[in-house]
Write a protein that binds this DNA or RNA. Sequence first.
DNA 1: CCTGACTCTAACGTTAACGTAAGAGTCTGA
DNA 2: TCAGACTCTTACGTTAACGTTAGAGTCAGG
Lengths: 166, 166
Amino acid sequence: MNTTSCESGLLKIGDLVRLTGKTPRTLHFYEELGLLRPVSRTKGGFRLYGEETLLRVRWIERLQELGFSLPEIQDFLTRLQEHAYGPEAMQRLGDFYTVKLAETRATLARLQALERDLQDSIDYLNGCRTCEPLTHRARCVGCDTKHHEGRAAPELVAAVHDSTTP
Amino acid sequence: MNTTSCESGLLKIGDLVRLTGKTPRTLHFYEELGLLRPVSRTKGGFRLYGEETLLRVRWIERLQELGFSLPEIQDFLTRLQEHAYGPEAMQRLGDFYTVKLAETRATLARLQALERDLQDSIDYLNGCRTCEPLTHRARCVGCDTKHHEGRAAPELVAAVHDSTTP
DNA sequence: CCTGACTCTAACGTTAACGTAAGAGTCTGA
DNA sequence: TCAGACTCTTACGTTAACGTTAGAGTCAGG
């Protein structure tokens, strides 16, 4: 089965939709932002994309996962255009990625810490299973029963116990 | 130095602002959403918070880092109210966190993959430093010079090389 | 008791990333 | 050639998470 619906080997927006999982609106939107551009148009005005566009759309997707906003990506692309020579442009790209690598590592560290906290909280809460079922919720505040082996409630648990909820 | 500005031991919104780094508007907003509530008010109508509120605000902050939206948090809190008995409520909390733990781990895996890709791309781009500086950018497409030891450009790099940019 | 700092409510504004609908024109295969 | 599927532009709508006035009232110290 072929990827394209026209002879030209070019993709109409519907093809791209199928190949990327994006909606037409999203692709239009990317174009509005200057992230994308059809190679040409049919006489009727239908957009025709080259296959590289597929790479481009996936690239955008990855960058979004990395936490880039579309305006940021756009920003980078336009700044890239300003460099006519490859090595210089590639240096820019490298810098761009280097910054993001650092951020990604920071995010990873944060998430790992949160992962530990979640696990701690879940462990702590498991102690509650051995508690008398009819214990009223209010009595959980500062619980120091044997069920938790003397452990204090982790922050993620303690904050749930209060009068701060409407 | 004391944390509070009133004798009551209660915190006015300004105190909470200093202690949490949030803005008054944010705290008002949390209250609108039902995430927060002052313990009482002054006769003039000023909000007075207990110290637990500090925990609560930080808790919200952490949950946000974990990718919870405020409506989600609100949702959880109200569902928690429906359980009068501690152990049952705590079970709910545990479930809530268990789901999020799985998501967090998935996110971690994704980010780790992206981290590798970034590193790969940076490594690949380092090869460009030994390229003739005046090479035009267009010639980078499908570059197969010795500079990259025969490696093909990683996706994060390849997608930048095309005619898809306006 | 008065002033300067603080707080209140109400309501409109903002950014990101699209969604949705409308009305009209285009393409293509039977 | 013509119906059904696809696409076009325009433009208003949406959710999240606050920001930003605006105008008025409140508190605390000198």
